[in-house]
Amino acid sequence: MQARKPSASHRPSQILDTLKRLGFGVAVAVPDSWLGEILVRIEREKSMQLVRATHEEEALAIACGARLGGVRTAMFVQNAGLLSMGSGMVTLAQRYQFPLLILVSYRGTPEDPVFYHVAKGRATEPVLRGLGVAFACADRSRPIGPQVETAATFAEEASSPFALLLSQEDVRW
């Protein structure tokens, strides 16, 4: 049976299509339930290599290494991972000025009131501000592709990581 092609308004497809169009060659990920399927789709792409890391700080370093080697690199992590990669973010990604696009499943917001995610949702944006990481929350009223492109462009033009915080409908395939 042939897989049905996602509609043009399917936001996870827009994310993947944008990464391919911008020449992203590597994606490094630590999955959660929202990210699981988009990572499978990335694995099927000939132009991209997916690395499944064991920890988000490790993923950050892999992404820095791939970018050091001249390949545009995106990360897919849950916001729990943003909280656990703080040291590497400060001492490696920011200190060495690596441009990295970090696509984040933003759990524990008022729209995702799962009891064990809420604490992470509460801490995410203050921690990003404290670390000095540029970030934006994706706007669900606008197409997601251009927002991913703007985030990727910011990372490169600023030579710094940029975190785009995504809702379930943005990233869950």
Partner: peptide, 10 residues
């Protein structure tokens, strides 16, 4: 891990 990413890119 940084060297792993570099090895993939090069």
């Amino acid at each position: 891990p940084l060297a792993l990413g570099l090895a993939l890119a090069q």
